[in-house]
């Protein structure tokens, strides 16, 4: 799905060769500051490499329109983004941004079920706890239904039990829908349990 060749970004990342498999779960692990977030941002053209090439489905992403790419390769940022308004507004915001048709409340409740957020759609999103906000923003990108999910520490503010449950559901959802999942995680345990491939980054270089 992705292939990176001699990619350099400032002095932060230096990647000789990297394949990311289609329809697989890839986990990226590494110490904080090693360049994990930067790598994800290169994949959806939030950043452009100074050198080297990145291919998506065999096409160099340099020649692709950024907005179109980001609508197929959606990224969930490390810090959850919550807009003012209700939970419903927040879920639908992703569809509005990616210009997809809006959906019924039934579908929205299904999504909330997947991310284990048992709340009313009318509730003000601002009042949710950190973990709940993170689950809401996860639900928002599931709704966009892209080809590739780039998740930057999607469970960092969840407790271990919830984390396990959410990731489990997320993985089975993406597997059954034949999606590609690239997930940065601080937990080696999560990576070992769920990943088809593990990429470890140390100071901007791939070590495995």
């Amino acid at each position: 799905m992705f292939f990176l060749k001699d990619v350099k970004y400032k002095s932060i990342l230096d990647i000789k060769n990297l394949h990311i498999m289609k329809n697989k779960i890839t986990c990226i692990v590494g110490e904080s500051g090693s360049g994990k977030t930067t790598l994800l941002k290169l994949l959806n053209k939030m950043l452009s490499p100074d050198e080297g090439k990145i291919f998506y489905n065999g096409r160099s992403i340099r020649d692709m329109n950024s907005i179109e790419l980001r609508r197929k390769v959606v990224m969930l940022s490390q810090v959850p983004l919550i807009f003012s308004g209700s939970i419903r507004d927040n879920l639908l915001m992703g569809l509005k941004f990616s210009e997809k048709p809006l959906v019924s409340d039934t579908i929205l409740y299904n999504i909330l079920e997947i991310v284990n957020l048992h709340k009313d759609l009318e509730e003000t999103a601002d009042k949710l706890s950190g973990g709940e906000k993170q689950r809401l923003s996860l639900g928002r990108i599931l709704l966009i239904d892209p080809d590739v999910y780039l998740l930057d520490e999607p469970s960092s503010s969840l407790d271990e039990d919830t984390e396990e449950v959410i990731i489990e559901k997320l993985v089975s959802h993406t597997k059954s829908a034949n999606k590609t999942l690239v997930m940065v995680t601080h937990s080696k345990r999560i990576a070992k349990t769920f990943a088809d491939n593990i990429i470890e980054i140390k100071q901007g270089k791939i070590v495995i």
Binding site: I67, R70, F83, G94, F97, R140, I144, L150
Partner: peptide, 17 residues
Amino acid sequence: KHLIESALMLGATPKMA
């Protein structure tokens, strides 16, 4: 800044973001 970047990551155009 962070809000704008997150919106872009969701496929927003700069205008929407």
